[in-house]
Amino acid sequence: MNRDLMEEYKKILEDDIQILDYEDLRYSIFEGPENNRQEYQIRIEKIGETFEVYMTADRAGVMGKYKFKDIFDAFHQFLSIMQDTILSNRKRVRDGDPPEYPCQLWDK
């Protein structure tokens, strides 16, 4: 897949994130599996012929990796993990537990 197409895909996903107002979450889109890693970060990467979607845990270890041939299936999983992250951290805050990391989305 050529670089221009990957940039187009990245722009589409970033636009979806902006529309959903999820920009404050920790995420990485096609940065390379070892680049810009953070704890509790949602990531999407192009590895060979597949798209991998996963979240990092504490110490940036990998948690629950999904592999897709279709980019739009990967986008759906990526955005679903974002929503799950918001909901689980809102519940943690509501119940008096610490969230994974500070983010204004937990308070909405």
Rank of each mutant, 00 (worst) to 15 (best):
N2P: 09
R3H: 12
D4I: 09
D4A: 13
L5I: 14
M6F: 06
M6H: 05
M6C: 09
E7K: 12
E8C: 08
Y9M: 09
K10E: 14
K10N: 07
K10F: 11
I12N: 06
I12D: 11
I12E: 12
L13T: 08
E14I: 08
E14K: 15
D15V: 03
D15M: 05
I17P: 14
Q18D: 13
I19G: 02
L20N: 10
D21K: 12
Y22Q: 07
Y22L: 15
Y22I: 05
E23P: 01
E23M: 13
E23Y: 10
L25Q: 10
R26L: 09
R26G: 04
S28I: 00
I29T: 05
F30P: 03
F30R: 03
E31G: 08
G32W: 00
P33M: 11
P33D: 08
N35I: 13
N35S: 14
N35D: 12
N36G: 08
N36Q: 09
R37G: 00
E39L: 00
Y40E: 10
Y40W: 15
Y40V: 00
I44K: 04
E45W: 05
E45P: 09
K46C: 03
I47M: 14
I47S: 14
T50A: 01
T50C: 04
T50F: 08
F51D: 12
F51Q: 11
E52W: 14
V53N: 07
M55R: 14
M55C: 11
M55F: 05
T56Y: 03
T56I: 02
T56C: 04
D58Y: 13
R59K: 11
G61Y: 13
V62C: 07
M63W: 06
K65C: 07
Y66L: 04
Y66F: 15
K67Y: 09
K67S: 15
F68P: 09
F68C: 07
K69P: 01
K69G: 01
F72V: 01
F72C: 04
D73I: 00
D73H: 11
D73P: 00
A74I: 06
A74Y: 06
A74F: 05
F75W: 07
H76E: 14
F78L: 03
F78W: 10
F78V: 06
L79G: 03
L79T: 03
I81F: 11
I81N: 02
I81T: 04
I81S: 01
D84N: 12
D84C: 05
T85C: 10
L87P: 00
S88W: 05
S88A: 07
N89E: 02
N89K: 01
N89P: 00
R92T: 00
R92K: 15
D95F: 02
D95M: 03
D97H: 10
D97E: 14
D97V: 00
D97K: 13
P98N: 07
P98V: 06
P98Q: 08
P98W: 01
E100A: 09
P102F: 01
C103S: 14
Q104P: 01
Q104K: 02
D107A: 05
K108Q: 03
K108N: 09
